[in-house]
Design a protein around this nucleic acid. Structure first.
Lengths: 209, 209
DNA sequence: AAGTATTTTAATCAAATGATTAAATGGAAG
DNA sequence: CTTCCATTTAATCATTTGATTAAAATACTT
């Protein structure tokens, strides 16, 4: 029964090195594919240090996941809830914001989505994000504009147009459809395309009629 | 140096049981997350049999991957290359076909895309799918209709609208945005929505002007 | 400088895991 | 029945891997 370990002063340096390494290796190889030794090596430290700072691989992973989920979803709500912006503004902001984030971390979505799928961690969603989104200004504006469109359907399409290319990136590489170098410029181009296309969808025929 | 193992008659039964089990376990847990013992148990056989029929976990995995890539991409080309159908028809066919396939295997896309990303296998793409697609009837029709739209951009949007919901399904569950039961009916609804929305995109403003 | 606490390491453990081996089982052919 | 061969199994190996331990090194306080 040892007393709780505390890292008071020198804290930041090594601990942050480990987390940074964990971010990198976990993101690239996933939970099951990552060996704690990989992380230690990447951090340039001894393996035992990893278990000294964090009690286990699992704990370290959940820390990283927490961050990644936040990074993937965190910017959405503020935009969704802003009553001062129009629907078009919100869409443009989401597109712009997401493509910027994902251009820096193309693997982020597929990593997070796949790890959630495999249930390799146990993090309880803080707020009921679903409910919060469905009550957001974005959804209300959408329902006013098009009472016939299920907001979830519209949202899935917009997010799909934004996020899917990053998820499909490995396949594009694999099949030579978008070599690494032009991929990012394609994504930049999408910043202008998606808002226009979202607008076209908002003006589309009513399917229910 | 033993002679090559051949399974002449009783072949089908056990071997197929193993492959079926491998499909299931690999798809659910990914390559790194899968233990050969899991597969053996799922197949109701002894672990050694697995290495008797297939030389290794790797070999078995690549067999499954081969199938899954085919399942994910195989139906695309025939539709793309059909000169007899209009652009609208092709889109409707792709939407219909994909949503049907994915409704039965919701995990298929994220599994394939993530394993490709992690390079957990070594399968050379048979045809240069990228080139074939870019020379397909679909792309030609698209370019005739809208010279200003980069076909890859359009394709990514359509596929994103179709595939992304399945990729995001774990997150929707996780956040209570689409409970399991209504998810599939949402996807059925999308069969009608996406073609209309694709059409709206085709009629959208020219961004380059 | 001594003493104390913190940080880091080398060595090792125990469990998990992919793979092999040698033996057994069972059916088909003669 | 017995021989033969494909199939199946139990037992075991060797390596990998997450984790621990005890000691050494370093930093901090007085």
């Amino acid at each position: 029964m040892t007393m709780q370990v505390e890292h008071s002063h020198t804290d930041t340096n090594t601990e942050e090195k480990i987390i940074a390494a964990a971010r990198k290796v976990f993101l690239s190889k996933g939970f099951s594919g990552t060996r704690t030794r990989d992380i230690a090596e990447e951090a340039g430290i001894n393996l035992a240090l990893l278990n000294y700072y964090f009690r286990s691989k699992q704990k370290l992973f959940e820390l990283v996941m927490q961050e990644k989920i936040q990074k993937l979803l965190g910017s959405l709500l503020p935009i969704f809830n802003n009553n001062a912006t129009s629907l078009e503004d919100k869409i443009a902001l989401i597109v712009d914001n997401y493509i910027e984030i994902l251009s820096e971390s193309p693997d982020l979505p597929i990593f997070v989505l796949n790890e959630i799928r495999k249930k390799n961690f146990q993090i309880v969603p803080k707020s009921d994000l679903g409910t919060v989104i469905m009550q957001s200004s974005f959804i209300k504006q959408l329902q006013e504009r098009r009472t016939d469109i299920n907001p979830v359907q519209f949202l899935l399409s917009i997010l799909g147009m934004i996020i899917f290319p990053f998820v499909a990136k490995p396949l594009l590489d694999y099949n030579g459809l978008a070599k690494e170098d032009i991929f990012l410029s394609l994504m930049q181009e999408r910043k202008k395309l998606i808002p226009v296309w979202a607008d076209a969808i908002l003006k589309s025929n009513d399917v229910t009629k």
